[in-house]
């Protein structure tokens, strides 16, 4: 399943970068994440609770930041397991300042799904992915506002 797109965030490149590198912020903005625990240099244990229409499940697994390019982006590797199947996503994130002083976040990658998650058909799963992405950016913007305040 392909995962790609971009979004302009109303914050400076530097701020977006700092937020993306901050565990507490990630816990708040990544949809479903209930717990993020540092287990090593740029390695985290993640627990997520996803609830969407017919699907609800508890996911556990790891999150690794690789290929860290200071201020520019990194590659996010997420592995999450659950009773209804496992997800394994690799997503490259790139930041680019815009003329207005905002930041464009581009992401490009894909997720491998297995088990029931894969078998329920891509109709549901691509919708879930769209929806999670939308939530991620909404949360991000909200968090930018909150942290401003």
């Amino acid at each position: 399943m392909d995962l790609n797109g971009s979004h302009i965030l109303p914050a400076s490149n530097d701020r977006v970068w700092r937020m993306l590198m901050d565990t507490d912020t990630l816990t708040k903005i990544v949809p479903g994440i209930t717990h993020l625990e540092k287990t090593g240099e740029n390695e985290f244990k993640a627990v997520a609770q996803i609830k969407m229409g017919p699907v609800s499940g508890a996911f556990t697994g790891g999150l690794v930041l690789e290929d860290i390019r200071e201020g520019e982006g990194y590659t996010l590797h997420v592995k999450q397991n659950s009773k209804i199947g496992n997800a394994d996503a690799t997503i490259r994130i790139d930041l680019k300042p815009t003329d207005e002083g905002h930041t464009e976040l581009r992401f490009d990658g894909g997720a491998k799904l297995s088990g029931l998650l894969a078998r329920t058909g891509n109709r549901v799963m691509s919708g879930v992915a769209h929806s999670l992405t939308k939530q991620f950016f909404e949360n991000f913007e909200e968090e930018i506002e909150t942290q401003k305040a």
């Binding site: 491998k112 799904l113 297995s114 894969a118 078998r119 329920t120 058909g121 891509n122």
Partner: peptide
């Protein structure tokens, strides 16, 4: 799919 998942494995 390319990972070997049968993505239409139901009557739906």
């Amino acid at each position: 799919d390319e990972n070997g998942q049968l993505i239409n494995a139901s009557y739906m």
